[in-house]
């Protein structure tokens, strides 16, 4: 039985234009270039990749925090990308975001009570008294207490702030939460607490997550399916275990092999990629990965790789044609 799709992203594109002076031609940065994927209800979909690969931009474009240039985003039967502002605002009740930096994403001038009741107020839910009740309930769920309602964000540690950021997203009981590197800024011992919280909330509220991260250990633990991005493109997508056991795309193979070992006696065949990620301003012709690819062929230099479906395992590479 196939679960029902909650979100379908089709050919999403987000280009930024750079002005380089009056007369020189405008340059384009293709931050997200023709990305398509589907997220099913109740699952955790991971988006991984290195900095600048467009994973965060994809997440923000889904919530229309950044307007996409082209493409469709189907959520609950509506094309989110085309919705007028007011309706989009109402729809956000069902799609929320958790940000990376818990220090920057909470308003320092508001108390926790104000921060938590604001989304309820904006969406006109409940009476003022009920909102306070809701806020204290959700605080307990994320592991804080009533006692914290009248404190300000600066009084909390990073882990506690991230709990508040998550509470703020969950209080509306959304269907979908886009979590952009939610644990990257936290200490190791706190990371596992927050991951546990995310898993617990998912069970309790039947949430669907898009989990954006560069930490492959965490992604392997928490996600059901993973999409790997490189220079604005989705290069591979598969079920998490399958992807980690049999990565197909040469980039995924290199990325997974680069993860530090977990025990000093582990040995790992390491594929060290040469060079850096090329500038997205001037991406290489053909397959964008070809200058660093250990399996580069002649065709890779000139032609864009097709997207090949190997049975629930999608890979964009000439090797599998």
């Amino acid at each position: 039985m196939r679960p029902e799709p909650l979100l379908e992203v089709k050919h999403l594109k987000k280009y930024y234009e750079l002005k380089k002076g009056w007369f020189s031609p405008k340059q384009q940065v293709k931050a997200v270039d023709d990305v398509s994927f589907t997220v099913y209800r109740g699952e955790t979909y991971g988006l991984v990749g290195e900095s600048g690969c467009g994973k965060s931009t994809t997440g923000r474009a889904i919530l229309r925090l950044q307007e996409a240039n082209a493409g469709e985003i189907w959520f609950a039967g509506e094309n989110v990308a085309r919705l007028p502002y007011e309706r989009m605002r109402r729809l956000r009740r069902r799609m929320q975001m958790v940000f990376q930096d818990p220090y920057a994403s909470l308003n320092p001038k508001k108390t926790i009570l104000q921060i938590l009741t604001e989304p309820l107020r904006v969406h006109g839910l409940y009476s003022p008294d009920e909102r306070v009740k809701k806020a204290s309930e959700i605080l307990k769920i994320v592991g804080l207490s009533d006692y914290h309602l009248h404190s300000y964000p600066h009084e909390f540690s990073g882990g506690q702030r991230q709990r508040i950021g998550i509470a703020k997203a969950v209080i509306l009981q959304p269907d979908l939460i886009v979590a952009d590197e939610p644990v990257s800024a936290l200490d190791v011992s706190i990371q596992s607490q927050v991951i546990n919280l995310l898993l617990q909330l998912q069970r309790e509220f039947h949430l669907t997550y898009i989990f954006i991260s560069h930490d492959l250990g965490v992604v392997r633990h928490i996600t059901d399916r993973v999409g790997v991005m490189y220079l604005g493109k989705l290069v591979e997508q598969a079920q998490t275990e399958k992807l980690f056991q049999e990565p197909k795309h040469p980039y995924t193979q290199a990325l997974l092999s680069a993860v530090p070992i977990t025990h000093p006696d582990d040995t790992r065949e390491r594929i060290i990629l040469s060079g850096d990620v090329p500038s997205p301003l001037d991406p290489p012709q053909g397959c964008t990965f070809h200058p660093r690819c250990p399996a580069c062929m002649e065709v890779c230099r000139t032609e864009k790789p097709p997207v090949v479906d190997l049975g629930e395992h999608i890979v964009a590479c000439h090797l599998y044609v």
Partner: peptide, 19 residues
């Protein structure tokens, strides 16, 4: 608490409290 020391999707063994 390292994710790979735990069962996938299971609860991670966490250290309570904060630094």
């Amino acid at each position: 608490s390292m994710p790979n020391a735990n069962e996938r999707k299971g609860e991670l063994k966490a250290i309570p409290g904060s630094v």
